[in-house]
């Protein structure tokens, strides 16, 4: 068993490939998390506009990209859009897909955060002459982010896991590299190693998250 699933010689051979994959996964995360957050902030700010022709399309947009499976979205961008003459390459497709999908999720989290800030905060800010956008940026958003920090972190955890989807468009991130190594070595050890690396990467975030959630619970009491 151990010979098959955790073979030391194979692990040693596959290690550089896996390490390159890990590097790409990290780089990808560092790209798609800020991208998704930026999209989320824009959507959340738009959600504070009380105009029908903003609200309605916004709601449709968010609902659509939350309901649409990200894998399907990615494959559509990668394999479907070229038929319309639009080729973005694997990397571009991943960036756009994550922007659309995780942006919608971050947007919902941040919207809930904004709504948790009492109206008196924005009124106080406006009464001193801050514009709507200034009041949102300096007064509301910092409090909103703090109020939904556990949800933001947990969403970020999901996003990092989702970067493994990029393997379907041949982006050499951790999962893709592990499968390469596996097919080269005819052995599942690289997959197991990748799983362990994912776990080691994300486990601290999970720990941090439960600590935050416990503290939030304690604070509410």
């Amino acid at each position: 068993m151990i010979e098959t699933f955790l073979n030391a010689a194979i692990l040693k051979a596959a290690w550089p490939i896996l390490l390159a994959g890990l590097g790409n996964t990290l780089a990808l995360s560092l790209l798609v998390v800020p991208l998704g957050l930026a999209g989320g902030v824009v959507l959340a700010l738009l959600s504070t506009v009380r105009v029908q022709w903003v609200r309605w399309p916004l709601m449709a947009w968010v609902d659509f990209f939350r309901a649409f499976p990200p894998l399907v979205l990615l494959i559509f961008l990668y394999a479907g859009l070229p038929f319309a003459g639009l080729e973005m390459g694997g990397f571009g497709c991943v960036a756009v897909a994550f922007f659309l999908n995780t942006g919608a999720y971050y947007g919902e989290v941040l919207r809930a955060g904004i709504e948790s800030v009492p109206a008196g905060q924005i009124e106080a800010a406006r009464s001193t002459g801050l514009s709507r956008l200034q009041a949102l940026a300096h007064v509301v958003l910092p409090q909103a982010v703090r109020n939904v920090m556990p949800d933001l972190l947990s969403n970020t955890l999901e996003v990092v896991k989702l970067t493994s989807l990029a393997s379907v468009v041949a982006l050499p991130e951790l999962l893709f590299q592990a499968r390469q190594a596996q097919s080269l070595t005819y052995n599942p050890t690289p997959i197991v190693a990748a799983a362990v690396i994912y776990f080691l990467l994300l486990w601290p975030v999970v720990r941090l998250l439960s600590r935050l959630e416990n503290r939030a619970l304690a604070g509410r009491r």
Binding site: P118, G120, Q121, E123, A124, A125, R126, S127, T128, G129, L130, S131, V139, P142, Q143, R146
Partner: peptide, 20 residues
């Protein structure tokens, strides 16, 4: 209006200080 509001101070029942 943002310029005009600098000349009009307002104090609220619930203070509305920025907690952060």
């Amino acid at each position: 209006i943002n310029h005009a509001r600098q000349r009009i101070g307002m104090v609220f029942q619930s203070f509305n200080l920025y907690p952060h």
